[in-house]
Amino acid sequence: MAMRVFVVEDSATINLIETLKELFGAEIVGWAATESHAIKMLAELDWDVALVDLFVASGSGLSVARALQGRDKARPVFVTTNYATPDMRSRCAALNVDAVFDKSVELDLLFDQLAILR
């Protein structure tokens, strides 16, 4: 069964969706560019992994992470951001995010984590 991934991302410059499909055969079950859309869709869809950008078109990825705090821990939430500061990593950890990856230098680490889940 393909890994079902939900992506919260508002930037078209990162082609994460195609990469996930190509590298992992992932099924992208949903995509949202805003906090409210992401929270609504994540509650309605069946997903295995959520990839959440911190800065989205409207709202915040932190609010998305907060909405997912009580999820089954078998469903990891990974934050991808260009702002992976120590403070932001700490804030994400407090919201039960499984890991934070800096988009500019840590995507390989994200892919390693996804390979483990596959």
Score class of each variant (00 low, 15 high):
residue 117 L to E: 09
residue 112 D to E: 15
residue 83 Y to F: 15
residue 34 T to W: 01
residue 83 Y to I: 04
residue 76 P to H: 10
residue 89 R to W: 01
residue 81 T to H: 00
residue 116 I to Q: 15
residue 36 S to C: 08
residue 82 N to Q: 13
residue 10 D to S: 12
residue 97 V to P: 00
residue 4 R to N: 13
residue 61 G to N: 07
residue 84 A to M: 06
residue 28 I to H: 01
residue 68 L to R: 03
residue 24 F to I: 04
residue 106 E to Y: 02
residue 113 Q to S: 14
residue 79 V to M: 10
residue 117 L to M: 12
residue 14 I to W: 12
residue 11 S to N: 13
residue 18 E to W: 09
residue 89 R to N: 05
residue 98 D to P: 06
residue 32 A to F: 07
residue 53 D to Q: 08
residue 5 V to G: 03
residue 2 A to M: 12
residue 72 D to S: 08
residue 64 V to M: 10
residue 51 L to I: 09
residue 7 V to G: 01
residue 28 I to N: 05
residue 54 L to N: 04
residue 15 N to F: 06
residue 104 S to Q: 12
residue 43 A to R: 14
residue 65 A to P: 04
residue 16 L to S: 09
residue 8 V to A: 03
residue 29 V to H: 03
residue 49 V to Y: 00
residue 64 V to R: 08
residue 25 G to I: 04
residue 1 M to L: 09
residue 104 S to L: 14
residue 46 D to N: 13
residue 101 F to C: 08
residue 79 V to F: 04
residue 58 S to F: 07
residue 99 A to C: 09
residue 73 K to L: 10
residue 34 T to K: 06
residue 114 L to Y: 03
residue 91 R to D: 11
residue 78 F to T: 04
residue 2 A to E: 12
residue 85 T to P: 01
residue 51 L to A: 07
residue 91 R to W: 10
residue 26 A to Y: 02
residue 80 T to E: 08
residue 58 S to H: 13
residue 82 N to G: 14
residue 23 L to M: 11
residue 40 K to F: 12
residue 59 G to M: 01
residue 64 V to Q: 06
residue 57 A to C: 10
residue 59 G to A: 03
residue 17 I to A: 12
residue 17 I to P: 00
residue 65 A to M: 07
residue 14 I to L: 15
residue 14 I to Y: 14
residue 72 D to W: 05
residue 7 V to Q: 02
residue 53 D to F: 05
residue 3 M to K: 07
residue 58 S to C: 11
residue 78 F to P: 03
residue 25 G to M: 10
residue 11 S to G: 09
residue 34 T to S: 11
residue 53 D to M: 01
residue 77 V to E: 03
residue 116 I to L: 15
residue 14 I to Q: 08
residue 32 A to R: 01
residue 41 M to S: 12
residue 50 A to H: 06
residue 64 V to G: 06
residue 55 F to S: 13
residue 42 L to Q: 07
residue 115 A to E: 15
residue 5 V to Q: 00
residue 40 K to M: 13
residue 83 Y to A: 10
residue 111 F to A: 09
residue 69 Q to L: 08
residue 29 V to G: 02
residue 29 V to C: 06
residue 39 I to F: 00
residue 12 A to F: 12
residue 37 H to Y: 10
residue 75 R to F: 04
residue 57 A to Y: 11
residue 5 V to W: 03
residue 66 R to C: 02
residue 15 N to H: 08
residue 77 V to Q: 01
residue 108 D to K: 15
residue 20 L to A: 10
residue 27 E to P: 05
residue 39 I to H: 05
residue 1 M to K: 13
residue 97 V to L: 03
residue 54 L to S: 00
residue 4 R to E: 08
residue 89 R to M: 07
residue 94 A to F: 07
residue 39 I to S: 02
residue 118 R to G: 14
residue 3 M to C: 10
residue 23 L to R: 15
residue 94 A to E: 14
residue 54 L to M: 12
residue 92 C to Y: 00
residue 102 D to A: 11
residue 62 L to C: 04
residue 102 D to L: 02
residue 73 K to D: 09
residue 115 A to P: 05
residue 51 L to R: 04
residue 18 E to F: 12
residue 60 S to Y: 09
residue 17 I to E: 14
residue 73 K to A: 13
residue 98 D to N: 13
residue 33 A to P: 05
residue 98 D to A: 11
residue 67 A to E: 03
residue 19 T to F: 02
residue 113 Q to T: 08
residue 79 V to C: 07
residue 60 S to F: 04
residue 94 A to S: 14
residue 113 Q to E: 15
residue 90 S to T: 06
residue 111 F to P: 12
residue 84 A to D: 06
residue 61 G to D: 03
